[in-house]
Simulated assay, not measured.
Amino acid sequence: MGLFGDLDDTIYQDKDVLKEDYQPDEILEREAEIEEYKHALSDAVFGRTPDNVFLFGKAGVGKTAVTNYVLTELQAEVDQRDTADDVHISRVNCNNESVYSIVRTLINNLIPPSGDRFPAKGPSKADAFERLYREMERVGGTHFFVFDEIDHLSDPDSLLYEFPRARANGYLEDARVGIIGISNNYTFRNTLSSKVKSTLMEQEISFSTYDATELSTILEHRAERAFVDGACDPSAIQACAAFAAKDDGSARQAIDLLLGAGDNAEKNGDDLVTADHVEAIHESVSRGQLKDKIADQTMHCQLVLEALALHQRDTGDTARTKQVMNRYQSVARDHNVDPLTTLESIRGHLDDLNMLGFLLRTEENRGQGGGRSYRWEVDMDIETVIDVRESIDSTPT
């Protein structure tokens, strides 16, 4: 018998249901958000320019899953209507990308397989936009550009100002465009220029975190498909939902916990996944989730978080914004990164981290006429944050 000859798939019937790339055919606990989405895109069914849509919410709360579901349903409806324009969907993750590289990706998504790829270097950004508009006109129909992690783009203004004005400026005649932006950062819109905000006129859809009851519903649906009958005890689902709801309300975390518990049961030769298996792997899964959450932030945001964690470890106290800035600049130089130099930029990153649930902020009373001042505190295990940052920094790129 070979090395793997003794393996027997005992508790899973479709393990892929618990993997991150699984796209469910039914979206649970997001009916209101789906209805808002449907209304925003409905003009595309009638050959009109759809609204631009921006989705905000923490990671793991269904933004991407709902987007994929709604666009798939829209595509199916348009295909059945003779009077509707064709719909073309391009998805781009903006993390560590420039506006030029994103436009290049959009161009190459439209160029037929036999055509020449748009080059990575050489043409200007204006040349890239011009080529994109030509390809859009050639293809025709309505183009949905889905920009995931749009808040990570270095210059979102130049991208988001361009597309809504393309028809008015004569760049497009037959083709139409709808922008879908996805962001974990609720404050992203505040970073855009006033002219971009007025041009976009987008519909905003906010995704709240899931509570334990909602997470239990989602997990029950997945467990029915992932495990053989009787292999997943309700206590396991309740434990996964409770841990995830207490942490950050992420369905992804809850599902990862269930997958980890299933693997733990299978490794031990158990034929029933229970709360004990969830308890056994909770810490390691949570640590992996934290690493992913931190790694999803921009480099300067990570360095601000690391600086505050180091300050708290060394002083045992919370920090004022100026103290965070001083430590951040030292940390940035240690990592061979040119530090930000304004207190406002550091305060912006602290506000973002607070909004995302990494930090706690308390207002400090500075007396009559003292103005408003805040103290900042990492809202998670400090040593874990420092260790995670060290592991991210040491990971080969």
Rank of each mutant, 00 (worst) to 15 (best):
L71M: 07
T64H: 10
V103P: 01
G249S: 08
K19H: 15
Y100K: 06
D379V: 08
V177Q: 08
R117M: 13
M380A: 11
I34V: 13
S194M: 13
P24T: 01
R176E: 11
K293R: 15
F46Y: 14
G5P: 02
I27S: 10
I89S: 01
G316D: 06
I111F: 00
D157Y: 00
R176H: 12
A332P: 04
D270L: 12
N184W: 07
T142W: 00
L308G: 04
N108S: 00
N169G: 03
S284A: 13
A236R: 08
E29R: 09
H143I: 00
K63S: 04
E97R: 10
D338M: 09
E73H: 09
G260T: 03
G140E: 00
D379W: 01
A265G: 02
S158Y: 02
F147E: 06
R287H: 03
D148M: 12
T397C: 09
G5I: 06
R189M: 15
G262R: 07
P396L: 05
E33P: 08
E73C: 10
A309E: 12
P156Q: 03
V146Q: 01
Q13S: 11
G57A: 08
T395N: 10
I150Y: 04
G262H: 04
T217H: 14
L160G: 03
N93K: 00
S198W: 02
V278R: 04
M1L: 13
I392W: 01
E377G: 02
D82C: 03
F54I: 15
Q75L: 13
E29D: 12
E36R: 15
A175V: 08
S208T: 11
G370W: 07
D51T: 05
N264A: 11
N68H: 15
R327K: 12
F144L: 09
D86V: 05
Q302P: 07
T67D: 02
L41Y: 05
E33M: 02
A239I: 05
L74Q: 04
Q312A: 03
S194G: 10
D51C: 11
